[in-house]
Amino acid sequence: MPEAPEKSDAAMKAWQEWQDAPWGRLRYSIAEANLLRHLDASGGEPLRILDLAGGDGGDAMRLAARGHHVTIVDHAPAMLAAATGRAVAGGVTELIDCVEADATDLPRDLADGEFDVVLCHNFLQYMDDVPGTLASVLAPLKSGGLVSVMAINRHSAPLTIAVREMDPAAALAALDTDQARTRMFDSALTLHTAEEIIPTLRTLGCRDISHYGIRSFCDYISDDARKHEPDYYADLERLELATTARPPYMHTARLFQLTAWKHTD
């Protein structure tokens, strides 16, 4: 999620509609499944989770529903208000805290929070200093804790343009740029690949890094209407779950997700 002082009502509405669409639901369900591969190792104990630039709580609500305590940090009051409303509707208000702050300049009690898990989902593409941002992301994480980093996959950009827009010339140009733009929030993006981010995480002391792809097939299926059909969606979700960690599919998925453990000294 981009950090901005305010989101327009139109952008907020579009964002909420996107989350409810099949591609939005897949983004959250696959990310949750990948996290559970590692969180289940905690033996079912409630964890303290920090969701940086967590927006209106799309990830947080799923984790709170499993009994974990989640602190959402976001710069946009409208997003946090929406997250609070979702927490009330979901009956998880005691497990959700919302903090208005810059995700890379946290209040001291959060910066020194010793969290079990830190999420950095769809935030990295808005930042100029990737190593510095990731260092800030890891700072509140306790030794032996889990970080999850998600971002738009640059490898997917030419494919998306060629398949969805049927514009091979633009796809060719996209091969040699890391710049893009999000229409929903009218923001500039810098696109990365998992192969670029993994060495940075290692340099910052992360170990046992796992690479997943999110929406390896969905974004390249042009018939969006069929994705709304329950049976078709169920089949698509099973396919996405089966390929999220299976080469070569995660390398061309629309999003990459990396999970890693902060090294214990």
Rank of each mutant, 00 (worst) to 15 (best):
G24R: 08
L26Y: 06
L26A: 14
Y28L: 14
Y28G: 00
E32K: 14
A33D: 11
L35G: 12
L35P: 04
L35M: 12
L35F: 01
L36E: 11
L36F: 08
L39I: 05
L39S: 10
D40P: 00
A41G: 00
S42Q: 03
P46G: 04
R48H: 14
R48T: 13
D51L: 03
L52P: 00
L52F: 10
A53C: 11
A53D: 09
G55K: 09
G55E: 06
G55S: 06
D56R: 05
G57N: 04
G57R: 02
G57P: 09
D59L: 07
D59P: 00
A60W: 03
A60L: 02
M61E: 10
A64Y: 00
A64F: 01
A65Q: 13
A65W: 03
R66G: 11
R66P: 10
G67P: 01
G67K: 02
H68R: 03
H69K: 13
T71K: 09
I72D: 12
H75A: 13
H75N: 01
P77E: 13
A78Y: 05
M79V: 00
A81M: 07
A82E: 14
A83G: 05
A83Q: 01
A83K: 02
A83P: 00
R86H: 11
R86A: 15
A87G: 13
A87V: 00
V88M: 05
V88G: 03
V88I: 09
A89N: 11
T93V: 14
T93S: 15
L95Y: 03
L95N: 01
L95T: 02
D97T: 14
D97V: 01
D97Q: 12
D97L: 00
D97R: 15
C98R: 04
C98H: 04
V99A: 09
E100V: 08
E100G: 07
A101G: 08
A103W: 06
D105Q: 15
P107D: 03
R108W: 01
D109I: 09
D112A: 14
E114V: 02
E114L: 07
D116C: 06
D116S: 07
V118I: 10
L119A: 10
F123C: 05
F123I: 07
F123V: 14
Y126L: 08
M127R: 15
M127T: 11
D128F: 06
D129Y: 03
P131C: 06
P131A: 12
G132K: 10
G132W: 12
G132Q: 09
T133L: 03
T133H: 07
S136Y: 05
P140H: 10
P140F: 10
K142E: 13
K142A: 11
K142G: 12
K142S: 03
G145T: 09
G145R: 08
L146M: 13
S148H: 05
S148K: 02
V149N: 03
M150D: 09
A151S: 15
A151Y: 00
A151P: 04
A151I: 11
I152M: 14
